[in-house]
Amino acid sequence: MADESRIAAARSTRSLGWAIVLFLVLPITIVVPVSLTDQRFLSLPQDGLSLRHYVNLVQSAAWLSSVGQSFVIASGATVISVLSGTLCAVGCWRLGSRWSELVRVLMLVPIIVPTIVYALGLYRLWVQLGLLDTYFGVMLAHGVTGIPYVVIIVSTSLANFDPRLEQAARNLGASVPYTLRRVILPSILPGVVSGSIFAFIHSWDELVLVLFIASRAIFTLPRRIWDGINEHLDPTMAAVATALVAVTAILLVLDMRTRRQRSE
């Protein structure tokens, strides 16, 4: 009797856990059927499935230009974050002094400080530098805020890297840049790839900074979605959302692949 109630308690805890995880996943999947609706408004399909909202999407110059802009900006931002972030992580790892410890603590600040706060200062600075509403301005802002994530991710893979390999290369006469290129980088490559994916998604999804530093010329995808949600909710939005979920899923699978290769 006591045993039965104990098993029942364990089972109900487990079901509750699974239910919460379903609560995390299921609401997001609702965008898929809504994007296939045959109606003109946000609804589930009623008389059949329809791809008309996807047709709307690929025929809309506005949406396509936003996708293009976001892609260019996220690519540029990723280059900035990954180059400087990876170098910084390796440098800090080798220095190992109080100063580099400080650098790593400072890297946490952008993760802790709400983006809205930084956005105000960024807007002011970009006015002074004439970078408002430019590709380069948004790229730089996204690139800089992506650095901490790259540093953290690359540092994690450096923690698993045997420093004696590096010393061996150096003792055999390899220069610092050569050691970096031929010894360190190949073994932390999966971390760098993860960092790149993270930096790309960071820029691709970023909204708050763009709301402040972009106006007419720069209209990234998140800003287009934001406008859509606030002004004209229609199933085309659901098609966009579905496409974004699909892109994320592909990137996630890529990331898992590289992680698996690393562990093998």
Partner: peptide, 30 residues
């Protein structure tokens, strides 16, 4: 060698100082 490692830290440190921390302090100042 240490200089080389500091030079590796430098780009990120300069970018963060100029384009993250400076505007953040500016907010407090305003």
């Amino acid at each position: 060698e240490r200089t080389a490692y500091w030079l590796m830290v430098a780009p990120a440190a300069v970018l963060m100082a100029a384009f993250y921390f400076y505007p953040l302090v500016e907010v407090l100042w305003i």
